[in-house]
Structure formats: C-alpha cells, structure tokens
C-alpha cells in the first residue's frame, strides 16, 4: 500500500438525483457520498481527473478536502460503473481512522505454474478473483498472491488456503473457490436450463395444463 494518502478536492452537492449527477460529471466532477462514524452522510462532487487517476491506480485511502472544512480520511468503499463497465460514475467513501480495522475487497493474483497445466485439455479456472479481508487502514494491500504451483487436476484452492500476513483476517467465505484445474471434456453439455429439442417441438406450457384440469372439473360438475 502507498505510504501517503492523496488529497481529493471536493465540494458539497445540494441538488441530488440522476439529472444533477449528470451535470456534475459534465462539469468535470465525480459524484460521491461520504458516510460513517455516526455522522450524517454528505453528498460531494469530487474533482474527477485526480480521483479517477488514483482510483484506477488501485488506491483506496484518500484525504478528502471538502470546501472550507478540515480534511477527512476516507476509504473507497464502493464504485459504480456505467452500463459498459468502463467509466466510474459514482463513488462511496467511508470515514475512517488510519488505525481502524476495516473490511475491504482485495484482488487475488495467481502466481506460479502448476505441472498439471501441461496435461492435454487442462484449464485453470478462477471463479472469484477477489476476496474480502479485514485489516488496518494503513495495511490495505494492492493484491494478495496465491501460489498455484502445487495445484493438481480436479483439486481446488479455497479462500482458506490463502496465506494472509499477520494482522489480516479473512472476512469472506473460507470455502470460496479461488482456483481449480479441470480437464475439458470433448463434448460440452448444454448449459443448465437448456434443452435440446428438435425443430417443431416447443417448451411445455405450465398454464395450459391448469386450463385442462379446470375444464375437466367443469365437465364433472
């Protein structure tokens, strides 16, 4: 983690909602909200150029300068993306103390090469590429490394297999699968919920059955 916290300049936002947030973005701002420590949430417009540069670089802790108020140390809690997932359109910032324990998302980087990958058709899957950890604000890591050199075919590495540094706790489910190696089958089965049906055949209609039973009941009457 970076030793110094970057200063983000911001102003308070009085008018809220989609329309005003869009205007903030057009004026070179990044809409955000600051909350935590039992204080009322404050809606802010942060200078986008600086903020995006640091956020995209992976920084999580900032010093927020708001109008004439004193600087506040804040932690990046959540980020909202646009519909294409490219641009950041809103950020959530939580007030923190530098020695406070916080829960953050950490990126899991796979290191090493497994011998199992030399097998024909072997595929390395990593269903989850981030985990939630609990640590001090000053110790937030850029990423956590997971060694996969011992991984064998058909086996998985779970969140509980991570070797976290001292002072770190795992906050996410210990059974979360982080990496596994599988051998690809020659013929893939269709995805769940799908059915291979010949042309002309349609799916079963649930409500039609009910209609039939109702009509039978009427006949009996």
């Amino acid at each position: 983690m970076a030793t110094e916290t970057h200063v983000l300049r911001s102003t308070k936002r009085d008018r809220l909602g989609t329309r005003y947030a869009r205007r903030v973005r057009e004026a070179g701002g990044l809409p955000g909200v600051v909350y935590g420590h039992g204080q009322a949430p404050v809606h802010v417009a942060i200078e986008a150029k600086d903020a995006l540069l640091h956020i995209n670089a992976g920084e999580k802790v900032f010093s927020l300068k708001m109008d004439s108020d004193a600087d506040e140390t804040v932690l990046l809690k959540d980020v909202q993306f646009d519909y294409l997932g490219t641009n950041i359109i809103h950020v959530d910032l939580a007030r923190v103390d530098l020695n406070e324990m916080v829960e953050v998302q950490a990126h899991v980087r796979l290191v090493g090469e497994s011998d199992a990958m030399k097998e024909a058709g072997a595929i390395l899957l990593h269903p989850t590429n981030s985990i939630e950890i609990r640590c001090r604000v000053t110790d937030i890591p850029e990423h956590i490394e997971l060694d996969i050199s011992e991984l064998e075919i058909g086996h998985s590495l779970h969140a509980s297999d991570l070797k976290l540094p001292s002072g770190f706790e795992l906050a996410s489910d210990p059974d979360d699968v982080l990496a596994n190696i599988v051998i690809k089958q020659e013929v893939e089965e269709p995805a769940e919920g799908a059915e291979v049906v010949g042309e002309g055949e349609g799916p079963e209609v649930i409500t039609e059955k009910k209609d039939e039973s109702d009509s039978e009941g009427e006949k009996k009457e």
Partner: peptide, 22 residues
C-alpha cells in the same frame, strides 16, 4: 441445436420496450 426454455408460463408474450441499457 438452438436452445430454448424447458418450461414456460405462457406460449407467447408481448414485444416490450427495447430502449434500455444493461
């Protein structure tokens, strides 16, 4: 073979709005 649902509640449905983003 093209895929389709196994079971549906209704055989046909309306076209519905298209002007949305994901």
């Amino acid at each position: 073979m093209p895929r389709m649902p196994k079971r549906v509640k209704f055989r046909k449905e309306f076209r519905r709005a298209r002007d949305r983003k994901a």
